[in-house]
């Protein structure tokens, strides 16, 4: 077999897999968003833009868009800051480095459902260990699920705890590619620790950061499991974002067209955000 034939076969395979698993479902979701349909079994009726008109008029949509954006921005920002910080610590030559690195990755490899339930129990208002500690500190009335803000902060915290290791791993790998000479040069040039970080470390991990922020941004904007498992969007919609809204409409309210329209709008908004992001932070080659 000629090499270019091999390449072509692999390429075709890749395209086929992408088409079947990603493009077709996406197209179907978009088609569904123009239909009035309450079941995946029967064909829906063409509804034009009715679903979109309805959704754009729903206060929940705008609230959830805002919540979801805040959630994505807060979680990504914290993940990046903490991820860089922990990567710097793990990059330093310390005794037991391999062990610490392994431990630092742990949260990422735990299943979300385990993490969500563990935190729910730890934070439980009656028997939770955190509640217990807070009581020992004299804070007896904190119940994370009793206010929208506290619940939001909690899901942000759990998400950050869980997915920061991804940033840590990427940044750590990227830190290892920055030559020591550059730090030496910066010191000779008169840079202190902060300026070294600002002018050597940060530019050195920039491209990785751009990709990490991009990926984490997409993932956090679409993150469904942790919120669904912990709060189902409550209380009072304080943690409800577009994926929860879409799921709720499509699978609970038998409004598959509406749910698909929410998902499609979410896709469009995310695409626009990505384009803007890439304009602002092009990946240099």
């Amino acid at each position: 077999m000629k090499p270019d034939a091999t390449v072509r076969i692999f390429l075709l395979f890749g395209i086929a897999v992408t088409a079947v698993l990603i493009i077709l479902p996406a197209i179907q979701a978009i088609v569904l968003s123009f239909q009035s349909v309450n079941s995946f079994v029967v064909a829906g009726e063409w509804a034009g833009l009715a679903n979109y008109r309805r959704i754009l008029g729903m206060p929940e949509f705008w609230r959830d868009l805002w919540t979801g954006t805040c959630y994505a921005v807060c979680t990504v920002a914290l993940q990046v800051v903490l991820g860089i910080g922990s990567a710097l610590i793990l990059h330093a030559p310390i005794r037991g480095q391999a062990l610490f690195r392994a431990i630092a990755i742990l949260p990422y490899i735990l299943p979300t459902v385990v993490v969500a339930i563990s935190f729910q129990w730890m934070l439980d208002g009656n028997v939770g260990i955190v509640t217990h500690w807070l009581k020992a500190l004299g804070i007896s009335n904190f119940v994370w699920s009793d206010s929208s803000f506290a619940a939001f902060a909690t899901v942000v915290g759990v998400s950050v705890w869980m997915w920061t290791p991804f940033v840590t791993i990427c940044v750590l790998a990227s830190l290892q590619t920055i030559p020591d000479e550059l730090y030496a040069a910066a010191r000779v040039d008169g840079a202190g620790p902060f300026q070294s970080f600002r002018h050597v470390t940060l530019p050195g991990i920039r491209d990785v950061l751009v990709v990490v922020v991009l990926l984490r941004g997409i993932w956090m904007f679409n993150k469904f499991d942790v919120i669904w498992l912990m709060t189902q969007g409550g209380p009072l919609g304080g943690t409800e974002h577009l994926p929860v809204l879409s799921y709720h409409m499509a699978f609970r309210l038998y409004d598959i067209g509406g749910g698909a329209a929410v998902a499609t709008l979410s896709l469009i908004l995310l695409t626009v955000a990505l384009v803007v992001f890439f304009r602002r932070f092009p990946i240099e080659t």
Partner: peptide, 28 residues
């Protein structure tokens, strides 16, 4: 280092990759 009034040239040049030549030279 910065107070020793020295300048150093490194084996791998150690130029700041994100800075233009002029900025590299003027960085100190």
């Amino acid at each position: 280092p910065k107070d020793r009034d020295i300048a150093m040239v490194f084996q791998n040049y150690a130029l700041y990759p994100h800075m233009k030549v002029a900025d590299n030279m003027g960085f100190s």
